[in-house]
Nucleic acid binder design. Structure first.
Length: 526
RNA sequence: GCCAGAGUAGCUCAGGGGUAGAGCAGAGGACUCAUAAGCCUUUGGUCGCAGGUUCAAUUCCUGCCUCUGGCACCA
């Protein structure tokens, strides 16, 4: 079986409801997944939830639920959210899944047997009320701890540690030898700078089950559960293992799995892309590669780090109330408008700034007046002048269109989603200029110009058809609507359709209908 | 505090030793197929501040100011 393009999102921690940051990461990942599929690759797109830990245990307790029941309820919301975003994920992992737990335990068993762990004592200040250790940073200027922590006592706790330290130089060498491993480049420099200027400390990988019961028990010491690293990060390999990826079956020979899914033998690992936020870069660029090396697995091809959103130039925060509810935006403006704004507004990497005015401006200028109006005027002219029948093929805009197609292809393969949208819209401008220069509405008044009018109309409809194919990974519903209006039955989900001349003479289109109705028109009384 | 990066048109940003660029916003115009859309033209800048190197600096160097990111909690 040939290896699929395997991409993942971060798995989100289930305390609370999904917000713009979650939606953003999932949408850009989905666009990448759809792009690769359109370009002919098999794709496995994974997203999911991180469910263990103190906060969830506490929140469940407060609601009088078991942690599992609490997570089950929230997981439903998050799956619904994924559907609302039209994510094309193949699976949805939850860290409380038995299939995930068994992989985590197999990993822990293997690394323990091979001497990657040791026990050690940690002495620190412990807040019983918050059930957490405090650090020097938690002290107030006078040296005391904030009363919210209650009684703070010095406590000694024994835990398991993973030997990170030994692999520091290897990691530096690996990152330097693989320039693509961390993108964008400034994030790579950040990691290298950190690794060269600091000595790694070994990683504490457990919590005593006595104070954190909602976790995965260590197979070799039931007094402990594994802490976040060997739980959440492992999701990236636990799902491939569940589908019987031979690389994982070999690396984890003691793993017992569900035979029905395992028999599929999907070839997924190594991941081609981990899409993450900048806040979890260290875990993915430092801990995870070393964990994989210890397990005996290849590293992912690339870690793609995106930025955060601000609103009106300020940090998004619930307390100040400047929040964006993605579902409200989707209900108000349509899913495709949301997907368009977040992919078009910024490149993957820098922080973005959400403004309602900017959103409305892009909607009107680019979606309604841009792609929507081009399709509308092209189909309207074909209807008026040729009774919706496509004339014989003509190639006047072919060269420009094919140049755009080639550029977009390269940009999609480089995950340059913003650039691809910009390229695609330049073709819209070209087509609008073409209409202006050739003035088909004038030619229509002169029967002697019938052939020239045919030529122009063919070029316009064909450009619209190609635009639908190019835009499908970003705006799947819109692309399908364009095809439907042109009267094409097959889906626009295949990049190979973006070849000039695909529209046959004599084809009959449907009637035009606005793809993105102008909002000012909508809201004004008739 | 330490380590990076950035300050260029109203906004978002590109560029780079020799007449400052794009998109959007603003202004004007010709048209009418279209969602009053589209097209053409066009106004805006001491290129953060102060020095230095150079025939020539927005670009290179130094200092300063401001902002952002990282310095192991958090999409």
């Amino acid at each position: 079986m040939t290896k699929s393009f395997y991409l993942t999102t971060a798995i989100d921690y289930v305390n609370g409801q999904p917000h713009l940051g979650h939606a953003y990461e999932k949408v850009i990942s989905d666009v990448i997944a759809r792009s690769r599929r359109s370009l002919g690759q098999e794709v496995f797109f994974l997203t999911g939830l991180d469910e263990h830990g103190q906060k969830v245990q506490q929140a469940a307790h407060n609601e009088g639920k078991t942690p599992q029941a609490y997570c089950d309820a929230l997981a439903l919301d998050w799956r619904t959210f994924a559907r609302e975003l039209q994510l094309s994920n193949q699976d949805f992992v939850r860290t409380s899944d038995p299939r995930h737990k068994s992989v985590v335990q197999a990993v822990l068993t293997k690394l323990n047997n091979e001497g990657h762990f040791y026990r050690s004592k940690y002495k620190g200040f412990y807040s019983t009320r918050q059930e957490t250790f405090l650090t020097e940073k938690d002290r107030r200027p006078d040296g005391s701890f904030d009363p919210i922590y209650g009684d703070v006592t010095e406590l000694v706790e024994e835990n398991y540690y993973f030997k990170l330290k030994d692999h520091q130089q290897w990691l530096i060498d690996t990152i330097e030898a693989n320039p693509e491993f961390i993108a964008p480049i400034n994030r790579r420099n950040e990691v290298l700078g950190f690794l060269k200027n600091n000595e790694l400390e070994d990683l504490c990988i457990t919590r005593p089950a006595a104070r954190l019961s909602w976790g995965i028990p260590l197979p070799f010491d039931p007094e402990y559960v594994t802490y976040v690293w060997f739980d959440a990060l492992v999701n990236y390999i636990s799902i491939p293992a569940a589908y019987g990826d031979p690389k994982l079956i070999t690396a984890l020979p003691d793993l017992k799995l569900d035979a029905s899914t395992q028999s599929q033998g999907l070839a997924l690992w190594p991941a081609d892309l981990h899409v993450i936020g900048k806040d979890i870069l260290k875990f993915h660029a430092v801990y995870w590669p070393i964990m994989l090396k210890a397990i005996g697995l290849a590293l992912p091809k690339q870690i793609l780090v995106h930025g955060w959103w601000q609103k009106d130039g300020e940090k998004i925060s619930k307390s100040t109330g400047n929040i964006i509810d993605p579902l409200a935006v989707i209900n108000n403006w349509s899913l495709d408008a949301f997907r368009y704004y977040v992919t078009r507004e910024l490149a993957i990497g820098p922080d973005g700034n959400w403004t309602d005015a900017g959103f409305a401006a892009r909607y009107t200028a680019e979606l309604a007046n841009g792609i929507g109006n081009l399709l509308n005027r092209s189909l309207a002219m074909l209807r008026s002048y040729r009774q919706k029948v496509v004339p014989p093929r003509h190639d006047e805009l072919s060269h420009g269109a094919m140049t755009t197609v080639a550029t977009v292809r390269t940009q999609l393969l480089n995950q340059d989603l913003q650039g691809a949208l910009q390229s695609l819209f330049s073709l819209i401008t070209t087509a609008n200029q073409f209409i202006d220069q050739t003035a088909p509405f004038k030619l229509a008044k002169d029967p002697a110009q019938a052939q020239r009018l045919d030529e122009i109309l063919y070029n316009l409809i064909e450009v619209c058809r190609i635009l639908a194919v190019l835009i499908w990974p970003f705006l799947p519903t819109t692309a399908e609507k364009i095809f439907a209006q042109i009267g094409i039955v097959n889906p626009p989900a295949d990049f190979n359709l973006a070849v000039w001349g695909g529209l046959p003479a004599g084809h009959v289109t449907n009637d035009p209908a606005p793809l993105f109705p102008r909002r000012d028109t909508l809201s004004s009384p008739a």
